[in-house]
C-alpha cells in the first residue's frame, strides 16, 4: 500500500470548491461570452434542416467540385449524403453536419494562429507542447464535467469539447509546416527586405499550406470521433441515435447511425484532402 503523503481528499475537495466558485460567480458571463457561437450554430443548423434535401446535396456537390475539380468525387459525395437521407437520418445528419462545420471553423480560427505563434516563439512552443499532449490524451469526460457545469447541457459545451479534442493536430501541423519551410528561401526573402508580415503571408504560410491542410483534415476526422460523446451532453444529431441504440439495445438503430457518421467522415475527409492536394500541386506547377 502506498503511504498517504497528504490528504488527497482535501485536494479533491479544494478543486471541487474552486470549480464551484467559478460556476457560481462566472457561469453567466461564460454563457454570455458563448452566445455568438451558439447563434452561428443555430443559424447554420436551421439553414441545413430547413433547406430542401436536394438543395443541400447540390451544395455539397458544388463544394466538392470546387475543392477537387473532379465530377466523379462530386458525384460520390452526393451519393454519400443521399445515403444518409435514405436510411432516414437526414435531420440528425444535418444537426451533426452543422456542429462539425462550426467546430472545424472555430478550430481553424484558433489553431492556425496558435500554430504560427508556436513556430515564431520557442518559449511559447515549450509551454504549448505539454498542453497539447494533455488535450489529446486526457479522457474527454474529465473536462466535460466542468464544461457542462459552466455552460449547462447543450450545444455550446459540445462544441467546446469537440474543439479541445480536435484542434491539437491542426496546431501541431501548422507549427511543423512553418518550421519545415526551407531556411534558404526565408533568408532570401529577408535579403530582399521583406518584413515579418511579408515573410509570414508571402513565404511561410503558402509553403506550409500542404501541412496546414493535412491538419484541417485531421481535425475534421477527430471532431467526428467526438460526435457520440458530444451528444451525451446535449448535441443531438447522429450521436444521439447511437446512444439511443445502446440504451435500448437496438443494434439496427445504432448500426445505421454509425454508418451515417462514417459517411460524413468520408465526406469531410475526401473534400479536405483533395483541396489540400490541389493547393500543394498549384504551388508547384499550377
Amino acid at each position: 500500500m502506498f503511504p498517504e503523503l497528504f490528504s488527497t481528499r482535501e485536494l479533491r475537495k479544494s478543486i471541487d470548491g474552486s470549480v464551484d466558485w467559478l460556476v457560481t460567480n462566472y457561469a453567466d458571463s461564460f454563457e454570455a461570452l458563448t452566445q455568438p457561437f451558439l447563434a452561428i450554430l443555430i443559424w447554420l443548423e436551421q439553414l441545413l434542416r430547413g433547406a430542401p434535401w436536394w438543395a443541400v446535396i447540390l451544395g455539397v456537390a458544388l463544394v466538392s467540385y470546387a475543392a477537387s475539380r473532379s465530377w466523379l468525387l462530386s458525384l460520390g459525395m452526393s451519393a454519400l449524403l443521399f445515403f444518409i437521407g435514405a436510411i432516414g437520418l437526414w435531420d440528425q445528419g444535418m444537426q451533426t453536419l452543422a456542429l462539425m462545420l462550426v467546430a472545424t471553423g472555430l478550430s481553424v480560427v484558433i489553431g492556425i494562429p496558435v500554430g504560427i505563434l508556436m513556430a515564431s516563439y520557442d518559449r511559447f512552443r515549450k509551454i504549448m507542447l505539454p498542453v497539447l499532449d494533455i488535450m489529446q490524451t486526457m479522457p474527454s469526460f474529465v473536462y466535460l464535467i466542468p464544461v457542462v457545469m459552466l455552460f449547462g447541457l447543450g450545444k455550446v459545451p459540445a462544441i467546446f469539447a469537440t474543439i479541445i479534442y480536435a484542434v491539437p493536430p491542426l496546431i501541431r501541423l501548422t507549427d511543423l509546416g512553418i518550421r519545415l519551410v526551407d531556411a534558404d528561401v526565408l533568408e532570401a526573402s529577408r535579403a530582399f527586405g521583406a518584413n515579418r508580415r511579408q515573410q509570414l503571408f508571402g513565404i511561410q504560410l503558402p509553403l506550409a499550406l500542404p501541412n496546414i491542410m493535412a491538419g484541417i483534415n485531421q481535425t475534421t476526422m477527430m471532431a467526428l470521433a467526438m460526435v457520440v460523446i458530444a451528444s451525451m451532453i446535449g448535441a443531438r444529431g447522429l450521436g444521439q441515435e447511437v446512444l439511443i441504440g445502446i440504451n435500448r439495445l437496438e443494434v439496427g438503430r445504432g448500426l445505421l447511425a454509425g454508418l451515417a457518421i462514417v459517411a460524413l467522415a468520408i465526406l469531410f475527409d475526401r473534400i479536405t484532402q483533395s483541396l489540400g492536394k490541389r493547393m500543394s500541386v498549384a504551388q508547384q506547377d499550377s
Binding site: 534558404d184 528561401v185 533568408e187 532570401a188 526573402s189 535579403a191 530582399f192 527586405g193 509553403l207 504551388q283
Partner: peptide
C-alpha cells in the same frame, strides 16, 4: 535591403510557389 543591396545564393533560394 530593398533598394541598395541584393543577393544571389549558392542554393539559389528561389521561391518554389
Amino acid at each position: 535591403r530593398r533598394h541598395k543591396i541584393s543577393m544571389v545564393f549558392q542554393r539559389f533560394g528561389l521561391l518554389p510557389h
